[in-house]
Design a protein around this nucleic acid. Sequence first.
DNA 1: ATGGCCAGTTATACTGGA
Length: 265
Amino acid sequence: MRIATFNVNGIRTRLPNLLAWLERERPDVACLQELKAGDEAFPADALRELGYEALWRGQRSWNGVAILSRHGPPVPVRRELPGDPADDHSRYLEAAIEGLVVACLYLPNGNPQPGPKFDYKLAWFERLIRHAHGLCRSTHPVLVCGDFNVVPTDALDIYDPRSWRKDALLQPESRACWERLLAQGWTDALRSLNPDAKVFTFWDYFRQHWQRDAGMRIDHLLLNPVLAPCLQAAGVDRWVRGEAHASDHAPTWVELDLSRLPGGR
DNA sequence: ATGGCCAGTTATACTGGA
């Protein structure tokens, strides 16, 4: 089973790109972020024509997340991250698909920092760490994926950190949260299979960063200890970033062999 | 230190992104 995460940066203008990717790569499950559209604008019919059932939580103008599945409709588990009833951002979805728990998240960007947006990012991260603790210890297989808006290291996860020193994605506080999350026992799929390689998932629209391969790794897929033995491969569909009118992110995926789960399937 | 490029908005300049 192949599961991908893709920050589409606007599902309305990006629908042709999204459909082209789904048709060519045929992921079994796709987690989307930054729909930038209300619930009523979600293109459920176009996705169903390609064989995908969807669960979504939109929001006007910004945020918005969705989980697509071509193995029957995703069974909703949560539509929000616990811990702050006043938080109305559409940034989290959790669903069950064929016995697998899939969480799709869009962690706050946090710029500019310092400031209230950075505070919100760290508070959201704390809530995620709290909730992920239970997911990691679950006896069920769990995958948590999405746009984490964290560049884990200077050495491997960004083309050159110098001009990004003050950016929220590289701050020690952001990275400390990421490390605490991983320390629960999660496997960072892309990094575990590429321990020494620079692998990017995002290239901004400025200064020909895509053409120069000046990217960073901020889209991540985490496997809990039950699921980790199933990890077969991980990668980035870079061709999607090179298309006309592309999102600034590329789809990032894992290939899982679920027959390796305890009990087998 | 700044700004470069995008998408969306009840738009024709701004916010948010990262």
